[in-house]
């Protein structure tokens, strides 16, 4: 079951990136763990990060302490998914 939950979280992270950054479905579907985010996706600036964190919280039912958020979780798609999975699945 843990894998099912992990897949759901990954799908949610993908959907949040699509919705907050306004990037199309096909492009976001092509993201893999190594896809670089911050610094490589022009749509992802520090302002967009604000909306992205709140959407992740609301859709995954998690709380993110802003002091624990550093650039590392936005380095690539894999890092962001791992962060969200750790929060949502414990």
């Amino acid at each position: 079951m843990i894998f099912e939950g992990a897949d759901t979280v990954e799908a949610t992270v993908r959907a949040v990136l699509r919705d907050v950054l306004g990037i199309d479905e096909a492009r976001v579907a092509g993201f893999d763990a190594q896809t670089e985010l911050f610094g490589s996706l022009p749509e992802l600036d520090s302002m967009a990060v604000a909306g992205l964190l709140t959407e992740l919280e609301d859709r995954l039912g998690i709380t993110v302490d802003d002091d624990e958020v550093d650039g590392d979780i936005f380095e690539n798609f894999g890092a962001l998914v791992r962060f969200a999975q750790a929060k949502a699945l414990g």
Binding site: S46, M47, V49, A50, G51, L53, T54, E57, D58
Partner: peptide, 20 residues
């Protein structure tokens, strides 16, 4: 949407702006 979610995004936006 809940007011708390709107407020949190606005506060995060302010903090990000300050950092820049």
């Amino acid at each position: 949407v809940r007011g708390a979610s709107l407020l949190k995004t606005m506060m995060r936006t302010r903090i990000a702006g300050d950092r820049e």
